[in-house]
Design a protein around this nucleic acid. Structure first.
Lengths: 105, 105
DNA sequence: CTAACGTACAACCACATGGTTGTAGATCCG
DNA sequence: CGGATCTACAACCATGTGGTTGTACGTTAG
């Protein structure tokens, strides 16, 4: 399954989810550990994790009765490259303008 | 006003808006020109542009009766740096694991 | 001046989102 | 076994989102 930019950007468009992502990138944590870190219900955190999971920014693995959430850096790289692409367009445009200005001299 | 990551990621979480952004980065276009390019009403495109504008990914400047939408690369760079930050965390973690493995030998 | 064009904005609708509570299934501990 | 813990998921609610249509206003063209 290819990464869906819509899903990845949407997942990143929430401060709580970005915070969860940072935590689990640093080191995997169970859903309850995460839930204890935020002023909201367990179910709410569970939903945030599900959004990150759909975007393939995190993955879960069972360990006994706990579910360990881990960061996945692949999708992140992909959207970072997308943003780089936009910036490349920008530089091309800037270069085009420069070229035109030079030719006008 | 500092860039709001929520706003920027949310703006990018829609294929139509990403397409609009690419177009106007390449070269500024009026709102009507943009509207003609998509299978939706003028008002809908206008709203998408407004979302991009709130995220400071584009800016508008009047030219006669037209409103020219232009790409702004600043916010883009900022969120790209944010993503780089996450990847940095990832590498730190990976480095930490390697160090631990080395010490265990 | 009048007509057409480009824009802005409000009102409305269907649906997704972010939060809640409650219930139920696994798994571990004493 | 029985209780505590971790997880999953459904139902519900308020609010936001993406789309529509309609109306109003400034600007340009004939």
């Amino acid at each position: 399954m290819v990464v869906d930019p819509d899903a990845v950007f949407h997942a990143l468009a929430d401060a709580t989810r970005r915070d969860i992502l940072m935590r689990v990138i640093r080191s995997g944590q169970s859903v309850s550990e995460l839930a204890r870190a935020y002023p909201m219900s367990f179910a709410a955190v569970q939903k945030h994790v599900a959004v990150l999971e759909r975007a393939e920014l995190v993955s879960k693995t069972r360990r006994g009765r706990e579910q360990i959430v881990q960061g996945e850096v692949g999708a992140l790289r992909l959207v970072a490259r997308l943003l780089d692409g936009y910036e490349h367009l920008w530089r091309q445009r800037a270069a085009g303008i420069e070229r035109i200005l030079e030719e006008e001299q």
